[in-house]
């Protein structure tokens, strides 16, 4: 089973296997290229040697033989190198968490817990809205009370004003003086009537 090394890819920005493949291809190309150079250099040297018995195809065979040998060792050595690099260099140990994932450790929230947290937030929002509305209603009533109190106080002042008028005119107890007044006015009416009768 292939270990996709996704976590490593998250850190490096490439998969370790790609990195190794990149190295492998580059190294292999160089091996072939240098072998090709060797081959062409020897062929050129041969040209310079008069009536040389060695044919180019023989050189070609030697090159292939040496290259085959090198290739085998290359594969073996590269396999070892890849193993070491993938294990010790291009890998993220199991106990290591990348910085961008630190939050997962501090807040190991399951889906359910998150759900609950979001529901709680919804609930708080509703409660807050209700409180805010209640607050508005209370403030509205306070405003209204102010106006009503002002009105009622005005009426009270008016009554106080009445009492003051009485007091200003020496009428301590309005009721008695009113009774007295009524009597007086009754007497006056009777007097008036008498006078009228007499005058007739």
């Amino acid at each position: 089973s292939v270990n996709p090394m996704v976590y490593e890819a998250q850190f490096f920005g490439f998969t370790p296997q790609t990195c190794m493949l990149r190295v492998y291809i580059a190294f292999q190309d160089y091996l072939f290229e240098t072998m090709q150079v060797v081959d062409s250099v020897i062929l050129k040297k041969l040209d310079a040697i008069p009536n040389c018995k060695i044919s180019p195809s023989e050189i070609r065979k030697s090159t292939e033989k040496f290259l085959l040998f090198m290739k085998e060792h290359f594969e073996k050595l590269f396999g070892k190198m890849e193993e070491v690099l993938l294990q010790l260099v291009l890998n993220i140990p199991k106990n290591v968490l990348l910085p961008e994932d630190k939050v997962q450790e501090q807040y190991p929230y399951s889906k359910e817990q998150l759900q609950a947290l979001q529901e709680e937030i919804q609930q708080l929002q509703q409660q807050y809205r209700a409180e805010a509305a209640a607050g508005q209603a209370l403030r509205a009533e306070l405003e209204e009370q102010k106006a009503v109190q002002a009105e009622l106080e005005k009426i009270l002042q008016w009554f106080d004003g009445l009492d003051n008028i009485c007091r200003e005119h020496g009428i301590s107890n309005f009721k008695e003086s009113f009774a007295f007044l009524t009597q007086n006015s009754k007497k006056l009416q009777e007097l008036l009537k008498d006078v009228e009768v007499k005058s007739k």
Binding site: V6, Y7, Q10, K94, N95, V96, L97, D101, V103, Q104, E105, Q106, Y107, P108, Y109, S110, K111, L114, L117, Q118, I121
Partner: peptide, 21 residues
């Protein structure tokens, strides 16, 4: 062993939201 992506993105991203929630 440390946490690793669960393979369920919304779960993992959710935890990233947790501190702000």
């Amino acid at each position: 062993p440390a946490w690793r992506p669960s393979g369920v993105p919304e779960e993992d991203a959710g935890s990233a939201l947790a501190p702000y929630l």
